[in-house]
Computed example of a mutant assay.
Amino acid sequence: MADQFVDLADEAQHKLDTATVLTTDQLQHLIGLAGRIYGPAFLAQAYSDGKVDNGTVRALVGNVWSACEYPDRELDRDTWQWLFDVAGYTEDGELAERPTEPVELWRGSVPERRTDWSWSSDRAVAEKFAAGIRGRRPGHLYRLVCPPEALLAANNDRSEAEFVVDTAMVEHLIEDASAD
C-alpha cells in the first residue's frame, strides 16, 4: 500500500516537472495525487517555475497551508512569506479586505512553538491544541491581539477559525493565557 502512495507522489511530481502551464484545478489535482504534505513544495515550485499565475497562488495558498499538518516543516518562513505576499490577504482562497482593527487570536502549543503562524479566533479551538489534540504534546494557551498588518490569511474550511500570522511582527505581543 505504501508503494502505491509513493508511486502517486512520484507521478504527480513528474507531471509537475514536465508541465509548461497549469490551471488552478490542474495543480490542485496534482497536490491531491501527491498528498497534502507535498502541497507547499508543489505550489512553490509551480509558481517559481512560472507554471501558475498569482491567481492560482491566491486561490490555493491558504488551503495548502491549512491542509499541511506542519506547514513550516515543508517550506521555510521566507518562502511562505513570499507566497502569501503574492496572494495578498485572502479569506478561504479569495482576495479579501484585511481587517482594519486588531483581532484577538488564540494559539495552543508547546512554548517553543508559540511563535508559529497558525492562530485561531476561537479560544476553544486553541484550548484543544493546548490540551494536546491529535497526538501533540500538551502545551500552553497563548493570546495575541494581532494588528491587521501581521495577518496573512484567514481559513475557515477546517472549522478552526484559523488566521495565518506573521509572528515576527508581533512576537512581543504574545501573552501566555494559560492561567486565565
Rank of each mutant, 00 (worst) to 15 (best):
V103A: 00
T115P: 00
I133C: 03
V110K: 07
A126E: 11
W106T: 04
L144S: 01
A124C: 03
W119Q: 02
A126R: 07
S109E: 13
E149Q: 07
K128R: 15
R158P: 00
E149T: 07
V103F: 01
K128N: 05
E149K: 03
P111L: 12
R114G: 00
N156Q: 11
R136E: 07
W117M: 08
A150M: 02
V145N: 04
R158A: 02
L144H: 04
Y142F: 09
L105F: 03
R113Y: 12
I133K: 15
L151V: 09
L151Q: 08
R158Y: 14
A131Y: 09
S120F: 05
T100P: 03
V110T: 14
E97Y: 11
L151M: 12
E97T: 11
T100I: 08
A161T: 08
P148Y: 02
P111I: 12
A153T: 03
F129K: 07
A126Y: 05
E104T: 03
L151P: 07
S121Y: 11
G108H: 08
R136G: 06
W117F: 02
W119E: 02
D92Q: 12
A154Y: 14
A126P: 10
S120V: 11
G135S: 09
W117Y: 05
A161L: 07
S121V: 08
A126L: 13
V125T: 06
W117H: 02
T100F: 08
R137T: 10
T115E: 06
E91Q: 15
V103T: 08
R134K: 15
A161C: 04
T115G: 00
A150Y: 00
S120L: 13
G132Q: 07
R137G: 02
Y142C: 01
S118K: 06
L95C: 01
R158G: 00
R136K: 14
S118T: 12
L95E: 06
W106P: 02
A96N: 06
V145E: 08
P102W: 09
E149G: 00
R143D: 13
R134H: 11
G93K: 11
G108A: 11
N155G: 01
R114A: 01
D157M: 07
G139H: 10
S120C: 09
W106L: 04
E149V: 06
R98M: 06
T115F: 10
L152N: 05
S121D: 15
A96K: 11
D92F: 09
R143Q: 15
D122S: 03
G108R: 06
R143A: 06
R137M: 09
T100C: 03
A131M: 13
E97K: 15
N156R: 13
E101Y: 05
A124Y: 11
A153S: 06
S109H: 14
F129A: 01
A126D: 08
V110I: 15
A124W: 12
G132D: 04
E160N: 02
N156I: 04
R98D: 01
R123C: 10
A131P: 13
G135K: 15
S120W: 09
W117T: 05
G132Y: 05
H140L: 08
P111F: 10
P138Y: 08
H140S: 12
G132A: 04
L141N: 03
P99E: 14
A130T: 13
G132H: 08
E160A: 00
E127S: 07
